[in-house]
Write a protein that binds this DNA or RNA. Structure first.
Lengths: 209, 209
DNA sequence: ACAAACAATGAACAATGATTCACTACTTGA
DNA sequence: TCAAGTAGTGAATCATTGTTCATTGTTTGT
């Protein structure tokens, strides 16, 4: 016998894999999934196209991994905001704000995750994560009902509506328009987020803040 | 000279074109855009694939036409509901209900129009029509504010949220799941529509009905 | 009946990129 | 240093479908 996989090699491979992931993410963040061609990713990562396939089953699988990690990061942020101290209303408001502000901070990536047309495989992942967001919101809504700060309501339905309302509100501003983009100034973004929140919070509470 | 396009021919061509459109719509309604291959459409229509291209620039263009006519039909229905007599609240409620109920009645077509991943060209059309829905709602919201039945609010933002909330609520139920589907009974559908409406109307009015 | 103009046909083509795989270059333990 | 085993390479291949176009069949006015 001769060659046996050693720790050093394992780490090198892990690093190579990680590097590919990061370059893919960069690619997606700059032009969405569709424009992230294997050749471009390979070029960025400084490896041959074949190498990608030594680390990932397929382009789809690579994308799925990017999608999951990027979205999970966002879901976690929302979960964090909901875990802060305070009543359900303030926590929900903070979480929604977090979601929207982060999306507006990385518009292309957010668009890729939320609204870019993707293959059925990724679309399935997307549905899963939309449910994940909704479940976090749902939990907080139940808290609010229990503590009396929110009127009784179908928490699941309300949470779904929250996800829809905020996504739809962001799709327009996030959509990579023909030429320039970022037509939204910092102030515009702030106003947009506020406006979204007013509708959402009223939908939940039945009162204008 | 010899051949000159005659009325009879014009009509025959128009009929052929219409037939292709109808078959395409049937195709889309049964499996979405993605699965509507030119060969399948041609087969259904009883013509050769090349014939399709005598009537339409390209598959994309054919799809765009289907998309526009199908979506316009829905937009019109919403507009009709909003044009009925009554105050803004009841008209908005009727319009939203109309939208949701019609979607649930033709789930696959609704999914194709609302949520199926499609090419950028169609996605653009989709954005246009989402705006169209929103504008109708927006107008009614302004009416409501003017007549005093709705509190003052950013009508444009609220209308966008309405479109998002209702779409998101429908995506899950409409998504063509692996096997069976139509896991929603008539009663389920009714409950779903009611639940959507409660959130939406509260988002608009600030009161539970 | 005839020729001009057009419609319909459908097999062949084209274009796009993901994926493969025979080969090269390393790494490892003896 | 050597042989076994693995990682990396990238040009060639494959697969999928929309689209073309030379050919065939129809319609029309004389």
């Amino acid at each position: 016998m001769a060659y046996r996989e050693t720790e050093k090699m394992r780490q090198r491979k892990a690093r190579a894999r990680q590097n590919i992931l990061e370059c893919t993410q960069e690619c997606v963040a700059s032009g969405g999934f569709r424009s992230a061609r294997i050749t471009r990713i390979a070029g960025l990562a400084g490896v041959a196209t074949g190498t990608i396939y030594r680390h990932f089953e397929s382009r789809e699988e690579l994308f799925a991994e990017i999608f999951r990690s990027a979205t999970q990061r966002e879901v976690d942020k929302v979960a964090e905001a909901l875990a802060e101290p305070g009543n359900a209303i303030s926590r929900l408001e903070a979480a929604l704000r977090q979601f929207a502000e982060r999306a507006l901070r990385s518009p292309m990536m957010a668009w890729a995750l939320i609204a870019e047309p993707v293959d059925p495989r990724l679309e399935e992942e997307r549905l899963v994560y939309r449910r994940a967001y909704a479940e976090h919101f749902e939990h907080a809504i139940r808290d609010g009902i229990a503590e009396g700060t929110l009127p009784d309501q179908d928490a699941r339905q309300s949470s779904t509506c929250l996800v829809g309302a905020i996504s739809e509100s962001l799709v327009g501003p996030l959509s990579p328009t023909l030429a320039g983009q970022n037509t939204l100034s910092g102030d515009d973004k702030h106003r947009l987020v506020d406006a979204i929140l007013i509708f959402c919070m009223q939908g939940l509470t039945g009162t204008r803040r």
